[in-house]
């Protein structure tokens, strides 16, 4: 009974995606099935708008994540070592972007960048995305640090490591999984963001989600189905590879 419920929910979750996969191979532009075809994939690759915006989005997610990893990890590590009056305030304010409806942040950037006469471009996008990516890294690293036994670092110091050395030898490797976790989440968020990008992207720096949004709004677009199918394949491939890698690692470390 309970198993059945789980499967029903998962089926409902995957139903729309299965429909999309099926329709990506439909030779008709409309909903009735007229036979198998790969023409939408061909059109997808020939659609320069999609290819360009996909490039933009990947670049944007990469740079935002990198910056967020840097700022978020350094911040979380530093906060754990610091005691200052505005600490609680800083922590809560830096987490706001995760909590606020995105549209408010989007409008804030739109207004501020216009005021400062900063042209909307990849730079403004990276600033905006980094801002909402930081909390995912920060929170993930922070909770790992809280659970980290201080005795590890103390043991390293006791054995002759300087403070800096102990950080690189002990703390960093031990929080690395948390950094990765936060970064993966941040990457997904950046790749998926419509609302903020909608406000701060320049004409030459449109992101994929915004592009898909305007295409979906304007009408029937079977290329999107092909795109979605490819993304689905990529995600499951990545999960598969990840699982395989972990299994191999486990076997290696057991032997």
């Amino acid at each position: 009974m309970s198993q059945l419920y789980i499967w029903v929910v998962l089926a409902v979750m995957y139903l729309p995606m299965l429909v999309v996969v099926a329709y990506s191979f439909n030779s008709s532009r409309y909903s009735n099935w007229e036979g198998f075809s790969l023409q939408w994939y061909e059109e997808l690759f020939n659609n320069s708008a999609i290819v360009d915006t996909l490039n933009n989005s990947l670049m944007l997610a990469f740079f935002s994540c990198a910056l967020a990893i840097l700022l978020g990890t350094m911040g979380a590590v530093g906060m754990a070592k610091s005691r200052f009056r505005t600490q609680g305030l800083l922590e809560n304010v830096s987490l706001i972007p995760m909590m606020l409806p995105e549209i408010i942040l989007g409008m804030a950037y739109l207004a501020l960048f216009s005021l400062c006469r900063v042209p909307f471009s990849m730079i403004t996008l990276i600033i905006a995305h980094t801002t909402f990516c930081i909390p995912y890294v920060f929170v993930s690293v922070q909770s790992r640090l809280v659970g980290l036994d201080p005795a590890y670092v103390e043991a390293a110091r006791d054995l002759g490591a300087s403070q800096t050395r102990a950080f690189y030898d002990i703390t960093l490797p031990l929080i690395a999984p948390a950094v990765l976790n936060g970064a993966l989440l941040a990457f997904a968020m950046s790749m998926d963001d419509v609302v903020i990008s909608f406000f701060v992207a320049g004409t030459n720096s449109q992101t994929l989600p915004v592009q898909v949004y305007s295409m979906l709004k304007s009408g029937v677009t079977p290329e999107i189905n092909a795109l979605c199918t490819l993304m689905l394949v990529a995600v499951f491939l990545a999960i598969g590879l990840f699982g395989l890698g972990r299994a191999l690692f486990k076997r290696a470390s057991r032997g």
């Binding site: 729309p16 995606m17 999309v20 994929l208 989600p209 949004y213 993304m231 995600v235």
Partner: peptide, 12 residues
């Protein structure tokens, strides 16, 4: 599915 663009899923 969460890793796939939400618009693509909405499209479904």
């Amino acid at each position: 599915p969460f890793w796939i663009n939400s618009l693509c899923r909405l499209n479904g």
